[in-house]
Simulated assay, not measured.
Amino acid sequence: MWKDNLIMHLRIIHLETDDSQIEAKINSSSNKRNKAVVSDKKYLCELCGFAAAKPSNLVIHMRRHTGEKPFKCDFCDKAFPNTSDLKTHRQSHTGEKPYICNTCNKAFPRAYKLRIHMRTHSGERPYICSYCNKSFTHSKNLTLHVRRHTGERPFVCGICGQGFIQGAQLRKHRQLVGHHEDIEPKRKTLLLE
Results as ranks from 00 to 15, higher is better:
2 W>G: 15
2 W>K: 09
3 K>R: 12
3 K>C: 01
3 K>T: 02
4 D>C: 04
4 D>I: 07
6 L>I: 06
7 I>Q: 09
9 H>V: 05
10 L>D: 01
10 L>A: 02
16 E>K: 12
19 D>V: 06
22 I>E: 03
25 K>G: 06
26 I>P: 01
30 S>L: 14
32 K>A: 13
33 R>S: 15
35 K>M: 15
36 A>G: 15
36 A>R: 15
37 V>C: 13
38 V>W: 12
40 D>A: 14
43 Y>I: 01
43 Y>A: 00
43 Y>D: 01
44 L>P: 09
45 C>G: 03
46 E>M: 11
46 E>V: 13
53 A>S: 15
54 K>C: 04
57 N>E: 12
59 V>W: 03
61 H>F: 02
64 R>W: 01
64 R>A: 05
65 H>P: 03
65 H>T: 02
68 E>Y: 01
72 K>D: 00
79 A>P: 13
79 A>G: 08
81 P>F: 00
81 P>K: 02
82 N>V: 01
82 N>S: 11
87 K>G: 05
87 K>D: 05
91 Q>C: 11
92 S>G: 03
93 H>L: 02
98 P>T: 00
98 P>R: 04
100 I>F: 02
102 N>F: 01
104 C>A: 03
105 N>M: 06
105 N>D: 13
106 K>H: 04
107 A>W: 02
109 P>Y: 00
110 R>T: 10
110 R>Y: 10
114 L>P: 06
115 R>E: 08
115 R>H: 10
119 R>M: 06
121 H>V: 07
122 S>K: 06
127 Y>V: 08
133 N>H: 12
133 N>R: 13
134 K>E: 12
136 F>N: 09
136 F>L: 10
137 T>I: 15
139 S>F: 15
139 S>M: 14
139 S>N: 15
140 K>A: 12
143 T>M: 07
146 V>L: 08
146 V>E: 10
154 P>A: 01
154 P>S: 01
156 V>E: 02
157 C>E: 01
160 C>N: 12
162 Q>A: 14
162 Q>I: 13
164 F>N: 07
165 I>C: 08
166 Q>A: 12
169 Q>A: 12
169 Q>S: 14
170 L>R: 01
174 R>L: 03
177 V>F: 10
177 V>S: 07
178 G>Y: 09
178 G>S: 05
185 P>M: 03
190 L>S: 10
190 L>C: 08
190 L>P: 07
191 L>W: 00
192 L>S: 07
193 E>K: 12
